[in-house]
Design a protein around this nucleic acid. Structure first.
Lengths: 186, 186
DNA sequence: ATAACCATGTAAATGGTTACATGATTAG
DNA sequence: CTAATCATGTAACCATTTACATGGTTAT
């Protein structure tokens, strides 16, 4: 599934601008299973407009730039429906941090610590975003997928936090880093 | 991190052919945090050869096609080391199945069931691959990342299996599908 | 017979990221 | 004064996927 289809999906939740859709990918309801940046969202939206799958209304705002609010058309809704009924591809995952940690024995202590902290921070951030997303009014299916994201991130965070000493091997190098780790977060 | 760097990483575990590297991504030690197909691995290997980061030896085999076995050079090892000491990018995730399930209220019962089953199958497969990968001789860091994958997949599988009724909403439609679900797997 | 596995590769097409370009407002 | 947030967009570049091309062996 490409960014175009995902934009259609985002708009099925309500009218939105490209900027707002970006936030749905970054910290909203899609954040744990899809990502997209401006460079793919804006072109996708313009292409969708040409296809007749969305309409666009320019909204002037006081004290900030005008925004383009997109709405799904019937054709757009039909296209989304069609895409949702294809054979799903396998998940794609790419993690630099897991890769670096996999080769942890090749890392110097500073990098090892930095990567480990970044990974924890990432999961903490993602978990915070999911907790800030209100799903109480959403259909059961959407709540279910939200719950999966929460379960996954909680597992990852827990695993990393409890295994810090195993992974870092009780480095004596930089006591300041250890302090930061003990102090941070929840 | 691109496929070239990951190939360097794969070769740091021992000499291998493109075909063998593919299997490391698909069902081996990298399977839960990276993926790559033939179309990116073979060109990457040839590019690495031009760069002088790997050497190649053609090995004739009885009863099967000759294979090209690649080995890391010192320059390759240095390049890997350098890549491992950059600032890691955030994780990238793309899940068609989660997306479809997120829009589960728009799916007809057959598709809803199919996607759900596919998702469970995917996690079961991945978990099986991880269990079949022997890490007993690997460095602690590699074992740690392996354990994270296991923990994550177990959580996902458990969440899906226990929530089947919540997600599928006790459809009465196709009793055969329910039987399959109850019978399958571990 | 047929499918799956072994084994490598290329060319075209797709799709996404990065960098650039612009510019007002608000909070620190 | 600086950084962040709001807001949109394009062009060049990069990487990956897909489809094609080939061909022997082994298991069902």
């Amino acid at each position: 599934m490409d960014t175009k289809t995902l934009c259609l999906g985002a708009l099925s939740l309500g009218d939105a601008s490209g900027y707002e859709i970006k936030k749905m990918f970054e910290e909203g309801p899609f954040s744990h299973f899809y990502d997209a940046g401006f460079g793919s969202i804006y072109p996708a939206l313009n292409s969708l407009l040409e296809d007749g799958y969305v309409t666009c209304q320019e909204m002037e705002q006081v004290g900030r730039p005008a925004k383009k609010v997109y709405s799904l058309t019937e054709a757009g809704r039909a296209s989304l429906h069609k895409q949702l009924h294809t054979v799903p591809a396998k998940d794609h995952i790419r993690s630099d941090m897991a890769t670096m940690m996999f080769f942890g024995h090749l890392l110097d202590p500073r990098q090892k610590d930095l990567v480990f902290e970044s990974y924890i921070d990432q999961f903490r951030d993602k978990l915070r975003c999911l907790h800030e997303t209100d799903v109480s009014d959403a259909p059961a299916e959407r709540q279910f997928i939200h719950g999966l994201g929460v379960a996954l991130y909680e597992t990852a965070l827990d695993y990393l936090e409890k295994g810090a000493d195993v992974f870092l091997g009780e480095q004596s190098g930089e006591p300041e880093q250890s302090k930061k780790r003990a102090a941070g977060g929840a």
